[in-house]
Amino acid sequence: MAQVVLVGAWLGVVGVISESLYLTKSVSVEITRKIVHIGAGNVILLAWWLHTPAWMGIAASLLFSLVALLSYWLPILPGINSVGRTSLGTFFYAVSIGLLTATFWEGSPEFTMLGILTMTWGDGMAAIIGQSLGRHRYTVWDMTKSWEGTSTMLLVSFGVSLGVLSIVHGLTPTIAAIALLTALTATFLESFARWGLDNLTVPLGSAFLAYGLWQWWG
C-alpha cells in the first residue's frame, strides 16, 4: 500500500506542476510537456527502490494509456495534451512503460529502467535544448530538428545507459560499448520518428538492443 501511495504522490506532484505551468503560461506548452515527460518517467527509479511488483506498473500503464487516449477528445490533461492534437506521444509513453515492465521488470529491471530513462531524459532534454539553444537546423521528412538537440539526445542517452548498466553490472569496456551502441540507436530512432512514435521506438529499441547485446557480450 505504501508503494502505491508514494508512487501516486510523486505523479500527483508532477501533475500539479504541469497544470501550474500551463495556467501561468510561465513557459511554452511544449516545454511544459517535456518537464512532465521527465518528471513522470523518473517514477521508475522510485518503483525500483521500493521493489514495486510488475503488475502495479502494468496496471498503471493501462490506466494512463486510457486517460491519454481520452485526453485527445476531452480536456483531461490540458497541460500535456490539447484536444485534437495529432501526436500520440503521451499514449505511446504510457504503453512503452507497460511493455517494458511486463518484459524485463521481474528478472532484469535495469533494462526497463534503461529504456524508460533514455526516453525520459534523452528525448526530454533533446527537445528542451533544441528549442532553447538550437541554431543549426536540419530537416527529416517534414520535421525540423537541430544538431544541438540531436547531440544532447546522444550524450544524455549514453550517460543514462552507462549509468544504469554500470550500477548493476559494473563499469567495464563491454558496458561502455553497449551504452554507446544503445545511445546511437536511440538517437537515430528519435531523429526519424513521427507522430510521437519516438516515445515507443526509443524506449523499446534501447532496452531490447541493450539486453540483446548484454546477452551476447556479457
Results as ranks from 00 to 15, higher is better:
Met125Gly: 01
Glu110Gly: 15
Leu114Gly: 07
Asp142Cys: 06
Thr139Ile: 14
Met113Glu: 01
Thr112Cys: 11
Met119Ala: 09
Ile128Ser: 01
Ala186Ile: 09
Glu110Tyr: 14
Met125Tyr: 11
Ala127Gly: 07
Ala127Glu: 09
Asp123Leu: 06
Leu181Trp: 13
Thr182Ile: 10
Pro173His: 14
Ser108Met: 14
Trp105Gln: 08
Met119Thr: 06
Ala183Glu: 09
Arg135Val: 02
Gly107Gln: 15
Arg137Leu: 09
Gly130Tyr: 08
Thr187Asp: 10
Ile128Met: 05
Ser191Thr: 15
Asp142Ala: 12
Leu133Ser: 04
Gly115Phe: 03
Met113Phe: 01
Thr187Ser: 10
Asp123Pro: 05
Val160Phe: 00
Leu165Met: 15
Arg135Trp: 06
Gly159Thr: 05
Gly134Val: 04
Leu165Gly: 07
Leu155Tyr: 08
Ser161Phe: 00
Thr150Asp: 01
Ser191Trp: 05
Ala193Leu: 02
Gly163Thr: 15
Thr182Phe: 07
Gln131His: 10
Phe158His: 00
Met125Cys: 03
Gly149Leu: 08
Met113Asp: 03
Arg137Gly: 00
Gly115Leu: 05
Trp141Lys: 08
Arg137Tyr: 11
Thr187Gln: 10
Thr182Gly: 10
Leu154Glu: 07
Ile128Asn: 02
Gly159Tyr: 00
Thr112Ser: 10
Thr152Trp: 01
Phe158Ser: 02
Ser157Met: 02
Phe188Trp: 15
Ile178Asp: 14
Phe192Gln: 01
Leu133Val: 09
Leu165Gln: 10
Leu184Trp: 02
Lys145Tyr: 10
Tyr138Phe: 13
Leu155Arg: 07
Gly149Lys: 13
Ile167Thr: 10
Gly115Met: 11
Phe192Leu: 06
Ala126Ser: 08
Ile167Gly: 01
Ala176Asp: 13
Met119Asp: 10
Trp121Lys: 05
Leu117His: 05
Ile116Asp: 01
Phe192Ile: 08
Ile128Arg: 00
Gly122Val: 04
Leu184Ala: 11
Gly124Met: 08
Phe188His: 13
Ile178His: 13
Arg194Met: 04
His169Gln: 14
Thr144Phe: 14
Leu184Lys: 04
Gln131Phe: 04
His136Lys: 11
Thr118Ile: 03
Asp123Thr: 11
Ser157Tyr: 05
Gly149Val: 08
Ser161Gly: 14
Leu181Met: 03
Gly107Leu: 09
Leu133Tyr: 14
Gly163His: 07
Phe111Ser: 11
Leu155Pro: 08
Gly107Tyr: 09
Thr174Ser: 02
Ala126Gln: 03
Gly196Leu: 04
Phe111Met: 14
Gln131Ser: 09
Ser157Arg: 00
Ser157Lys: 01
Val140Tyr: 12
Trp195Glu: 00
Val140Ile: 15
Phe104Thr: 00
Ala193Ser: 12
Ile129Leu: 13
Thr185Ile: 12
Met125Asn: 05
Val140Asp: 03
Val140Ala: 12
Glu106Asp: 15
Ser108Leu: 07
Ala126Trp: 03
Gly130Pro: 15
Val160His: 02
His136Met: 03
Leu154Ile: 13
Val168Gly: 04
Ile175Lys: 12
Phe158Glu: 02
Met113Trp: 05
Tyr138Leu: 11
Ile167Val: 14
Ile116His: 03
Ile178Arg: 15
Met113Gln: 00
Thr187Tyr: 06
Leu114Met: 12
Leu114His: 04
Ser132Ala: 12
Met119Leu: 12
